[in-house]
Design a protein around this nucleic acid. Structure first.
Lengths: 276, 276
DNA sequence: CGTGGTTTTGATTGTTGTCAAATGGAGTGG
DNA sequence: CCACTCCATTTGACAACAATCAAAACCACG
């Protein structure tokens, strides 16, 4: 397991997760590398005033490079920081009694993987790197602090939690009510769309560095069946996955099979602002 | 469909389950009937200062009695109020293209069924009464306003959204990774526990006014298979469901089959308070 | 005493899981 | 540069859980 841990702040010699953000308009430190991706993500769904953006950008964090399989949160173990995906792919999962697992969320660049843990630091779920990834660990205290100082941020955080919920809801619906091909197709449509929105690919060609076993855990299937289902889609939609890179010739056919409709991703900025 | 709608405003000479103790110091209006259930629910997971409780209790709302099948929110239709369950049972659902549906959440007394809609008024999901129910409609504007005025409330709302998410996550895991008996047993364990916590029954004997068809929609099964599975549990755990009332002789056996562990319900009040 | 919805039962089909083994590819050390 | 290993992918044969189709029994309600 690779732990290339290092301080993310530029001109400091100090270790530890010590320093606090300067929230005000003062002579700010250069933004923490990676943090701007999170701000972009939030602004996808919320209108944030400039000072709120600045406050977020000035949050310090600890950058970490982790290898595939590295656990960033464990069910039942309290944590005091959230995990921002700077690059790579993380998964949220539920562990079953018999050892099998169900992946309940995938997180790509710009996602704060466990924003949930800010109000609820003792998670019932786990977070794991599904591929080699770069993450930025941001302390709950700091996040709560900007959230308290800027009501717009509090609302944006809440809103992002709801978006996550909406995605999970669709996921559950697919698990309960659709067959293997639909489920796989839907996952690919979703991740393609999300990658495109995040600016790291097109929906017909994007990175998804997951093994078929991990896909199986996400889709509630077995590895064997994922493989067979993929062979089907390969034929009907010109799908190919090689070296963690997805490519689809006939995206519309894929979306058709998936009954894909992206409204559940809540990509329109929600109107309602704060009341004065 | 019965629509006994009425304004729940204070100075109406109205009858009903009206008057409440005055909580705050100020010359407050009598609390809206039903609202105290929501406050109890929030206080299960969050510590709320007195003035925040008072603010919540003084929120106005419109009481509604709805019959089974009544839709309180429709996917893709913007709404401007949230739905508090005063009594009965609501379900959140996802509609599939072929007309089948998946229920993704059940809401009992005290639950704000779509707190989600406060930051995201255009839902991708629907809310429906699974049984005759009494609900209290509370405007988003009011909820956002108390939330902005009381950071503790904002955090409590966010936290409740996370709890809902955690439950959904477990639901998804069960849909993806367990068989019919486990799934049904788990649902019964969960609803029993939640009913007990909400103070409306014991986990071995509580109301769950759902038809087997609705259960099937919640469990991702067919009516037929729900029925067969129930017959199995009837034998192994002394389960009986009659007239919407569940009774279990051997609760431990049921929990065993379900691999039930209630930590995901997040019933411990989360410690982290606001930073000053 | 009918009527409509819900529950129950039976027979059969089909999607997916299980078990097992072969193939392929990337990285490692001799 | 070539075995060798580890892991991921692919293929096959078979079993099992759950869906489907169909109809009967039951129950609350007017």
């Amino acid at each position: 397991m690779t732990w290339v841990s290092r301080k993310a702040s530029p001109a400091d010699g100090a270790p530890a997760s010590g320093d606090r953000p300067r929230t005000g308009g003062a002579p700010v430190l250069p933004p923490t590398p990676g943090m701007e991706r999170f701000v972009e993500r939030l602004r996808l769904r919320s209108v944030l005033p400039l000072d709120a953006c600045a406050a977020l950008l000035s949050l310090r964090g600890r950058t970490l490079e982790v290898g595939r399989g590295h656990q960033l949160a464990t069910p039942g173990h309290e944590i005091d920081r959230a995990t921002l995906v700077v690059d790579g792919l993380l998964g949220r999962f539920d562990q079953m009694a018999d050892g099998s697992r169900q992946i309940t969320a995938l997180h790509i660049r710009g996602d704060m993987a466990d924003l949930h843990s800010v109000p609820m630091p003792l998670p019932a779920w786990g977070i794991e790197a599904l591929a080699p990834s770069t993450v930025l660990l941001v302390s709950h205290a700091d996040l709560r602090s900007v959230s308290a100082a800027h009501p717009a941020i509090a609302l944006a955080f809440w809103r992002d939690t709801v978006a996550d919920s909406s995605i999970l809801s669709k996921w559950a619906a697919n698990l309960g009510r659709t067959d293997a091909a639909t489920r796989l197709a839907h996952l690919l449509c979703e991740m393609g769309t999300r990658a495109q929105v995040a600016g790291i690919g097109r929906r017909e060609a994007f990175a998804l560095p997951m093994t078929q076993a991990q896909l199986a855990d996400a889709l509630g299937l077995t590895t064997v069946h994922v493989n067979r289902t993929m062979a089907t889609l390969k034929q009907s939609c010109g799908l190919s996955i090689a070296a963690g890179h997805v490519r689809v010739t006939d995206w519309l056919a894929l979306a058709e099979i998936a009954s894909f409709d992206d409204t559940y991703l809540l990509l329109e900025p929600a109107e309602p602002q704060l009341v004065a």
